[in-house]
Amino acid sequence: MIRPLEHILIPVGLIAVGGLLGWSFFLAVTGEAGERLAAVALAHVPDSGVSNPVTSVLLNFRAYDTLLELAVLLAALLGIWSLGTAGSGFQPAASVLDGMVAGFVPLLILSAGYMLWVGAYAPGGAFQAGALLGAAGVMLALAGHRNAGLPSEGRLRLLVALGVFVFAMTGLLLMVVGDGFLTYPRGLAKWLILIIETAATLSIGATLAAAYLGGRPAAHPKSGEAT
């Protein structure tokens, strides 16, 4: 039996969308390019305070986008928290898994710190470092730690809002000083970027681990220490 929606309409629509996308992509790639944004961005990388082009675009030229992205992450976590409390977690791990987790979590935290520092001149940066911290939290959750190594709710709220707060405050302070929102002065750019990235790393890691728990942390007196 031929169902008209599934066997005719969807394939025809997909072919049409595909043809349109392919045609416009072909035109975009083969067409004569004017002055590209890449040339401007790459030319200004030495002024940005970091030498990794991607980090300089993320944290300097397009810092506005990154600030709003951290806000999106925070909003998603607030949405998850508003849907209810987290489940009761996994069973406590047996000794082999527990020993492996105890060895791996400090290594992950150490490599997150390395990733954060190295992001200034090589592949890496706040998002990758935050992902490693989040992975440490997921490992702890899988091994049966109910709160994934996150602090109690009051401090966790501060931690997940830290990235947006530090980012916005830096921007506002620069505005007060007279440089404009998130326009870093030459000499200070490297340090301002590092401060913002550190705060962003901590809150990305905490947000991802808290999102993995899938709900508001249940009130629990014997929660572990911060990741």
Partner: peptide, 10 residues
């Protein structure tokens, strides 16, 4: 080009 890379990372 670093600009699309930053977009994708976001």
């Amino acid at each position: 080009d670093p600009v699309p890379h930053a977009l994708v990372l976001t």
